[in-house]
């Protein structure tokens, strides 16, 4: 079953996936070229596990009852980005139940924020949008919150449009771990949770963020934008116009020096 003595492997949708000790399920899967949908996971960062798009089921069992019926007992559900891979584990990802769950999660994010794609600079390369396309999310389904959120244009080079924030914390992590600046943090909780800037005024312009910082370039959606750089790639030639998000999963494989 295993490729060699040192390589351990598990099964993802019945396909054998090798992994290195310490890798999580999604890390091993992406390295092996198998796509598992995700938003808060990023190849350069330690997995975080908040968006739950990468939820998989582990070790479902099929049993035969006394009257000869075959019954499937669903395995435990877990975020594949934070769950360590284990040898011989059977992981399900591409099942109708999990695809439906992921559609529901995308729809939840779509109604929580104000996602007006036609007027968004990130459209065409937005991970939330790309994922919605890939999952076939045709509508937000739930009633829109239409929450009132601000735009912060106080920084000379970088614009913040909080309407589109999905609270993945990538900017928080990037600023703390890579830039060592702690420009972003989260405040509030539950449905009042929101991104804040590290200044008494609360304004981005009063922080030491630079446009070249990792934090200014990691947002998967259209919150952290570079001024004077909108709509540069024509419609039809943008990232998700040309290839679906699930294309070439190895592009999301973890890079060696993870922070």
């Amino acid at each position: 079953m295993s490729n060699g003595q040192d390589t351990k492997s598990f099964f993802l949708d019945d396909e054998e996936i090798p992994f290195e000790e310490g890798q999580t399920i999604i890390q091993a899967a992406l390295t092996a070229g198998k796509y598992i949908p995700h938003l808060c996971y990023h190849p350069e960062f330690k997995p975080h596990g908040s968006c739950k798009l990468c939820t998989v089921r582990i070790d479902s069992r099929t049993i035969t009852t006394e009257d000869g019926q075959t019954v499937k007992i669903p395995g435990r559900a877990a975020a594949s980005c934070t769950t360590p891979a284990q040898a011989e584990q059977h992981v399900e990802s591409n099942t109708p139940e999990l695809l439906d769950l992921r559609r529901t999660l995308v729809q939840m994010l779509l109604v929580e924020g104000n996602h007006f794609c036609p007027s968004c600079e990130k459209s065409g390369k937005c991970m939330l949008q790309g994922l919605a396309y890939d999952l076939g999310v045709m509508s937000p389904h739930f009633p829109q919150y239409f929450s009132k959120r601000e735009v912060d244009a106080t920084h000379p080079d970088v614009l913040l449009d909080f309407n589109r924030c999905i609270l993945c914390e990538l900017c928080v992590r990037a600023s703390a771990e890579v830039d060592k600046k702690n420009v972003f943090s989260l405040s509030g909780r539950g449905n009042t949770k929101h991104l804040i800037c590290n200044s008494e005024s609360g304004k981005l312009g009063d922080t030491n963020l630079a446009a070249t910082d990792k934090a200014a370039n990691v947002c998967p959606v259209g919150v952290i934008l570079h001024k004077r750089h909108g709509f540069e790639v024509p419609y039809g030639q943008r990232r998700f116009d040309t290839a679906p998000i699930s294309d070439n999963p190895v592009q999301y494989a973890p890079v060696k020096e993870q922070v």
Partner: peptide, 20 residues
């Protein structure tokens, strides 16, 4: 809704949708 910490999507949004 009052007590969800808001870390994960299903709970942060789901508790509010359930309440609504």
């Amino acid at each position: 809704v009052h007590e969800s910490c808001g870390f994960c999507t299903p709970c942060r949004v789901g508790t509010t949708l359930l309440k609504n």
